[in-house]
Simulated assay, not measured.
Amino acid sequence: MASLVPVTSDDRVSPHPHDEDGDPRSSSFSGDGAEGSTTTTTSAETSGETAGRAKRSRRKRKQLPLWQETILLLAVALALAFVIKAFFLQAFYIPSESMVPGLQVNDRILVEKPSYWGDNGPQRGDVVVFEDPGGWLGPTAAEGPSNPIAEVMSKIGLYPTGGHLVKRVIGLEGDVISCCDEQGRILVNGQPLDEPYLADGLQCNGPEVNGCTADWETVEVPEGQMFVMGDNRAQSEDSAARICDPAVNTACTTGREFVDTDLVVGKVFAVVWPRSSWDWLERPATFADVPDPR
């Protein structure tokens, strides 16, 4: 049977072979210190060599010529402009007096698109830009820019495009619009609209070309469509100007006065030029009082 031998301090720590005194503390300290010093020196040398190689690599890296950098930056700028036009913002100009006094001829406006993403659509009171539904614009207004440079710029949103109209949304699907109450106000679902953005001095807020005393009423706005009017009611080729009045034209067809909401490009939110016309456009509060269609 083996006997247990007690472990002494000499058994736990052996003296360093080169230490004549046999002091384990002295051996451990001098050995560790020497090894640590050697390791530090080696790391510093390695770091220096690595830094030197990195500097030499940077010196060897060839810089692009100025003309290549210019082309690259231009391509990136054009790509960003195209993305912005397609998904976020687009510039247009006002070609006629149909939105006076709020929007003057040749005003530059900005249209934003995210508000109508997904299931969101135009709201009553919004000023919107939409594509010509067909026959609303004359040949000249529908053509757009003819200058080649302007055509390219219009593709990326840096120049206004043709073939579009700007109007105010008065009614949406299910709404019935009529003209006018005793104060000459347009009614939507029986609710009169107070429209301070119209020109002063009007006898009524309906299209004066049809006579302020003449009464008219639309059928319910079909699904996915809207009824739009210009703020200059007397000089606007809009929905009210296309209402079918059998008493005047027995051959007219109901429905041509409405605009498909899929044709909407976006909502006008700012006038950016000229500087004297700078302004933000907001939805008038009067439309908040319009009841839902029956």
Rank of each mutant, 00 (worst) to 15 (best):
E20Q: 15
L73Q: 11
I170K: 02
L73M: 09
T250A: 14
V219G: 12
N232M: 05
D215M: 09
D126C: 01
I149C: 01
A214G: 07
R242A: 02
R275M: 11
K62Y: 03
D200V: 07
A234D: 15
C180E: 11
L72R: 14
V76D: 07
T161H: 05
I94A: 01
F87D: 07
W136A: 14
N232F: 05
A141Y: 09
I243C: 05
A234K: 09
V105L: 03
S47C: 09
D279L: 11
Q183M: 06
C204I: 08
R242Q: 05
S146T: 15
S154C: 02
G134I: 04
E173A: 14
C180R: 09
G255I: 05
Y159M: 04
T41F: 11
Q225F: 07
N120C: 08
I243E: 13
W280Q: 10
D126H: 01
V265I: 12
D262M: 05
Q183P: 01
N189Q: 04
G125V: 01
G157A: 01
G31Q: 13
T39W: 10
R25D: 09
E131R: 15
N106E: 13
G174M: 04
A199L: 14
D181N: 05
D181P: 00
R108C: 02
Q191E: 15
V268A: 06
L193C: 05
G184P: 04
R12N: 04
G206T: 10
T253H: 12
N120M: 10
V128H: 00
T70M: 14
S14N: 09
E208C: 09
G171K: 00
V127W: 00
T70E: 09
Q90E: 15
W136N: 06
S146D: 13
F82K: 13
L103N: 00
P24V: 13
L73K: 10
P284V: 03
P65D: 14
L4Q: 11
D107H: 00
S26T: 13
L80T: 13
T39I: 10
D262N: 14
E237M: 11
S98D: 02
P274M: 04
A288S: 14
G157N: 00
E182L: 04
K167C: 03
I243W: 07
R56C: 03
G134M: 05
W136Y: 15
N232Q: 06
V188W: 01
I156G: 02
C180M: 08
E45F: 07
P133L: 06
L74T: 15
G266T: 00
L4S: 10
L4G: 07
P6V: 10
S28T: 13
D21Y: 13
N210F: 15
V111N: 00
